[in-house]
Amino acid sequence: MTTDTIIEVKRLQKHFKEGTVKALNGIDVSIRRGEVTVVIGPSGSGKSTFLRCLNLLEVPTSGQVIFEGTDITDPSVNLNLHRQRMGMVFQHFNLFPHMTVLRNMTLAPMKLLKKSKAEAEEKAMQLLKRVNLADRADAYPSQLSGGQKQRIAIVRALCMEPEVMLFDEPTSALDPEMVGEVLDVMKQLAQSGMTMVCVTHEMGFAREVADRVLFMDEGRIVEEGTPDQIFNSPQQQRTKDFLNKVL
């Protein structure tokens, strides 16, 4: 495992409603290449906001997000180029309902990476095979189950060959029997060496797959460490309280 930093977050703050709601209260953290970072914490702790600030879907109120050496909060950088290199998976999948699975996956590579249709489709089919959905290439999203949709959403992001994958509670909207199939794909992805930042409530996944766990509360990182440190010997009282409730 290499240890160079891929994303560095400095004094990140995000306020909503003219500063009356402080979702993020000064976050400093480094995401290292090849690492799986899992963010946990009670709802309203700011973990989703934190994740969405990493690719600037939420524009931070202040602070910096330095991705591969570039401060992407600087308004003069071309954000679109950097976003191409950060895949994102949403709680509600957000597949494009008016396109087939294959078109969902080839749209961005053809538009942005200037791939030919054949190239883009070949890559998409490879990825579909990896998640055992090659037979659904011509289906529309509404014909898929939730678990299938989320697996497609993951490989759609992978089609852009990103450097890092961001997961925003990817299993929260799924029926329980479908959670496993999505987590399996994520584990597979982690094993292949992908840099991942996951906001999740799946403590089992965090324990098993994470290289590092961040515990957030009230817009701050309260505690961070290996899964063993966080789950077996938490140092902070708030971490202990939270883990007692969820485990």
């Binding site: 690719n55 879907l57 679109n80 180029l81 950097h82 976003r83 191409q84 290199r85 950060m86 895949g87 994102m88 949403f90 509600h92 957000n94 597949l95 494009f96 749209l107 961005a108 538009k111 942005l112 759609r156 992001a157 852009m160």
Partner: peptide, 15 residues
């Protein structure tokens, strides 16, 4: 149209 559609497009790097 759901806001998530815009977010999905932008997160892929589309302008």
């Amino acid at each position: 149209v759901d806001k998530g559609q815009t977010e999905a497009g932008r997160s892929l790097g589309l302008s």
